[in-house]
Computed example of a mutant assay.
Amino acid sequence: MLVSRRQLRREIRCVRAADLQRAIPHAEHTLTDHQHHLGPDHIDNLTAYSYLADAYQQAGRVGEAIELFEQLLTDFRRILGDDHPHTLSTRHELASAYQQAGRVGEAIELFEQLLTDRRRILGDDHPNTLSTRNYLAYTYQHAGRVREAIELLEQLLTDSERVLGHDHPTTGSARRSLAVAHAARRSSE
């Protein structure tokens, strides 16, 4: 039986509620159903891939998540093109998974490319562009490139406060990340 979008949303809630033991088997079953009934290129099948990859990543099964995100990125590029929002989001998720797996060089390269593309497609002030800048700064810091992280975070904080406001989660994240980066710089001096 084909799983409905309502059931997919329920799976997302499971993942968000950190009930990964229940979410992963549902997402795997959904993916199998969608592949069988809809074919590999249907958007619902690709969405099921995304949910499963996200669940794997949250469960610490990062290698499996990376495999799915890489396949998903290939499929989205082929079906929707490089500039489609789903393709851009998948690139972001893949870079995040690379970072989590300790593949920091690959994460930085992908985040830098993604930032260039999001600026071109969405503009400097789009919330997704701001979020990518935050993740890139975090990854720079993780790679020991603290000065670059601080420079990026200082500008991000200014832009985020201007665009999103002082109380927005992205602004708060930039503020916290900047404080951590300054502390890391002081401890390394």
Rank of each mutant, 00 (worst) to 15 (best):
E28T: 12
A97D: 05
L46I: 03
G60A: 12
R77W: 04
D44A: 13
T132H: 04
T30R: 03
R77N: 14
D19M: 12
E154L: 00
L8K: 07
F69N: 03
L72V: 10
A53K: 05
P169W: 09
Q58K: 15
F111H: 15
L52G: 02
S96Y: 14
E151M: 05
L88E: 05
L38R: 02
G102R: 01
L110K: 06
L153Q: 07
Y135C: 12
F76E: 10
L68Q: 05
L31I: 00
A53N: 02
L122K: 05
Q71W: 03
V15G: 12
E11V: 08
V180R: 14
Q71V: 04
A183D: 04
R185Y: 12
D33H: 04
L153V: 10
A149R: 01
G81V: 08
L73R: 06
Q35D: 05
I12V: 14
A107G: 07
E64L: 01
A53G: 10
A97L: 07
L88G: 10
H36S: 05
A17I: 07
V3P: 01
I12C: 06
H86I: 04
V62N: 03
E161H: 06
E189I: 11
R91N: 09
D83P: 04
R91G: 08
D117V: 05
Q99D: 03
L115G: 10
R186I: 10
L156V: 11
L153T: 11
H182P: 02
Y49S: 11
A181W: 00
P25M: 13
D167S: 13
R162D: 00
R185I: 02
H37C: 10
D19I: 09
Q155A: 11
L52Q: 01
H29Y: 00
V3E: 09
E106W: 00
R175A: 14
I12S: 11
R22H: 05
R13Q: 13
R186G: 06
R175I: 10
H42T: 06
C14M: 15
G60K: 04
I108Q: 09
Q57S: 15
E112D: 13
A55R: 06
G105D: 14
L8G: 03
P169V: 11
